[in-house]
C-alpha cells in the first residue's frame, strides 16, 4: 500500500455566493509514478467534482497547470508526488486574478503583455511568395528559440517580489519577450524604441534582482542573463540619448 497523501487545497469559487476562501483537506492513497496531474484529476472525479484547476498538455509543454506547490510556484503536471512529503499544500498563483480554487487567469495577463511589449516582428518588408527565404545564421535562430521557449505559465511573475508589490511591473516573462525580439535580426525596432517600452520602473529598472523568476522557471530559461543584458543595454541607451541631446 502506498502512502496516504494529505492534500491541503485552497478553495474559493467567486461565482458561488456561499463560498469563502478556505483550505480544504483531501486524503488519497499514493500510486506508483503518480504526478499531481493524476492526483488532482482523481480528486475531482472521485471526491469533489466542483474542484477547479487547470491542466492541458499534462506533459510540461503548455504551462497551463502552474500553481504554488508547498510554497514554490511550479508546474503540477511535472511534479511527482514521490518527491513531496505526505502533506501537500496547493495554492493558486498569486498576482494573477483568481478564477476559482487553483485556477488563475494567466490568459488575460499575457494578452495584455503582448500589447505592452508589442510582441511581434516589426518590419517594413513585405512577404514575397516567389522569393527564397531571407537567410539567417543557425546560431542566431537557436538563440532566439532559446528565449522563445517560455510557456507563459506565470511562475516567474508569481515568484517575483517586485510584481507582488507593484501590479504594473512587467515581470521576467515580458522582459524576456523583449530580449527575444532584440536579438532577432528581422525585427527593425531600434534600441530607443525598446527603451520606450521597458526603459522605466514598470520595465527593466523596476527589477530588484531577487531572481526567484529564474529559480522557479520550469523551462529553466536563463532569465537573469536576459534581465542583466537588458538593464545594461537600456542603461547605455539612456546615456547615449543624454549625450546626443
Amino acid at each position: 500500500m502506498g502512502r496516504l497523501l494529505q492534500f491541503e487545497i485552497f478553495r474559493y469559487n467567486p461565482e458561488d455566493k456561499d463560498s469563502a476562501p478556505h483550505m480544504q483537506t483531501f486524503v488519497m492513497e499514493e500510486t506508483t509514478n503518480m504526478t499531481l496531474f493524476i492526483a488532482l484529476n482523481r480528486l475531482r472525479e472521485e471526491q469533489d467534482p466542483g474542484l477547479i484547476f487547470d491542466f492541458c498538455c499534462r506533459a510540461g509543454i503548455c504551462g497551463a497547470c502552474a500553481m504554488v506547490i508547498n510554497g514554490r510556484p511550479g508546474l503540477a503536471c511535472q511534479t511527482k508526488t514521490k518527491d513531496l512529503p505526505e502533506i501537500i499544500t496547493l495554492l493558486p498563483l498569486p498576482v494573477f486574478k483568481l478564477i476559482g480554487d487553483l485556477s488563475v487567469d494567466t490568459g488575460i495577463w499575457f494578452r495584455e503583455m503582448y500589447q505592452k511589449t508589442e510582441s511581434w516582428i516589426h518590419t517594413t518588408k513585405e512577404f514575397d511568395s516567389a522569393k527564397e527565404e531571407e537567410r539567417m545564421d543557425n546560431a542566431v535562430a537557436e538563440e532566439i528559440y532559446e528565449l522563445e521557449r517560455c510557456v507563459e505559465c506565470g511562475c516567474c511573475i508569481a515568484a517575483c517580489g517586485t510584481a507582488r508589490l507593484r501590479e504594473d511591473f512587467m515581470g521576467a516573462a515580458a522582459l524576456n519577450r523583449i530580449a527575444r525580439f532584440v536579438i532577432d535580426p528581422r525585427d527593425q525596432r531600434t534600441d530607443n524604441q525598446y527603451f520606450d517600452i521597458i526603459g522605466n520602473d514598470y520595465g527593466i529598472f523596476g527589477c530588484m534582482g531577487l531572481l526567484a523568476c529564474e529559480d522557479v522557471c520550469p523551462k529553466k530559461l536563463p532569465l537573469q542573463n536576459q534581465l542583466g543584458f537588458l538593464r545594461r543595454k537600456m542603461g547605455i541607451t539612456a546615456i547615449k540619448q543624454f549625450i546626443r541631446k
Binding site: W120, I121, K125, F127, S129, K131, E132, E133, E134, R135, M136, D137, N138, V140, A141, E142, I144, Y145, E148, D184, R186
Partner: peptide
Amino acid sequence: PIEMRRLAHWGVPWNRVV
C-alpha cells in the same frame, strides 16, 4: 514550402543550414 517561408518572415526561428 511557401507557407514555411511565410512563417519565417513572420518570425519563426527555423533551424537553418549550417
